[in-house]
Design a protein around this nucleic acid. Structure first.
Lengths: 195, 195
DNA sequence: ATTATCTATAGATCTATAGATAATGC
DNA sequence: ATTATCTATAGATCTATAGATAATGC
């Protein structure tokens, strides 16, 4: 025992990373502080020298999840079509531990602290802007509105595909929503003109 | 103590109803068996004469939530437009205890038992059929596919509107997704024709 | 001297069960 | 006699803290 400040920073990051992974997988209340520390190669006693409370870790882990997504395949796609396909892939569905926390922790955050919900909100705004910027210029209507529709559909479809027990239905949800959204964004004539 | 079989059936239903309400509000792990029994006017000791395990109650409570929704305003609307508006209302967002569990327990069920996920799946199939049947006949393309898109968007939008800390954004999500979906289903020309 | 981590534990949970009590129902 | 519910508790958690230990860093 007794380690350098540099080592402490590494340790801190390791705890946050374990939490960011496990919270998405098991839910925010699905793993104990002691088990998170154990997975980070530590014991529970040191925890409160890193965080003032468990809720403090929850907020940091949420931020880490979002930072990770920012640099992942989910966000780095060149076109809206590819972004939608990446989001609604079986890979994204199955790898919950590295998934978009806007979907995998949507209920957990609803019931969590204001701090957690604020971090979540900021990330959602960024994701909506990202989608909005990828809407092809020739699409008519309000691009922000279309981004909100598309993102809601993606988040909902991902959640449903994970909750459902029938693998065929799970796949159908992902593929159908992807196809419908892509069709919507490749249309010459936007629906808004009729509304 | 010592009550009739008829009374036991009532008691059983009361426990299930409390659980159905509280699980949606606080999450499946958000309330203890003891507290559920207390809210039903009972003590914890009698619980296991009604249910073989806590997971058993989870499944029954889930079924009760879905049965309740089947007869609620959410399902009893005459048109698809009204169904969408009822689902994406602030009332539905705020009254989580009586809300659609497909949305309020989407993460919880993903992490729950196979039994819970099967009940969830059956209910989702029914809800998808309900939406599909309300798609106006003049809409082109695959109505099942459109129902899956619409329902995913509704479930996602409801979840996001509850997770977000900014009330304005929360309302914008609900209203925008409602407007976009309604526009989609009132269009003369469906998007599928271009896909 | 300070501090990052450890061992150990207090105090508050939570699920599930054992055994007592007071009704029901053959 | 059976049983629906109660009181009480075992045993397993969980968050948070106290105090010891062994390094770092002025």
């Amino acid at each position: 025992m007794g380690h350098s400040q540099a080592e402490k920073a590494e340790t801190h990051q390791r705890i946050v990373d374990v939490a960011a992974r496990r919270f998405r997988e098991l839910g925010i209340e699905g793993i104990s502080v002691a088990d998170i520390m154990k997975e980070a190669g530590l014991t529970v006693g040191g925890f409160y020298k890193h965080f003032t409370s468990r809720d403090d870790l929850v907020v940091e882990a949420l931020m880490a999840s979002f930072a990770e997504i920012e640099e992942s395949d989910l966000t780095q796609q060149p076109t809206l079509k590819k972004t939608i396909q990446a989001y609604l892939s079986e890979k994204h569905r199955d790898e919950v531990h590295s998934s978009c926390a806007l979907s995998s922790l949507i209920n957990d955050v609803s019931r969590s602290t204001d701090d957690a919900r604020e971090v979540y909100t900021q990330r959602l705004e960024r994701s909506l802007s990202h989608i909005e910027n990828q809407v092809p210029p020739e699409i008519e209507g309000n691009h922000r509105a279309k981004a909100i529709l598309a993102y809601s559909a993606c988040v909902g479809a991902m959640g449903l595909s994970r909750a459902v027990s029938d693998p065929k239905l799970s796949r159908q949800i992902l593929n159908t929503v992807a196809a419908e959204l892509i069709s919507l964004f490749s249309a010459k004539q936007s629906q808004d003109s009729v509304a």
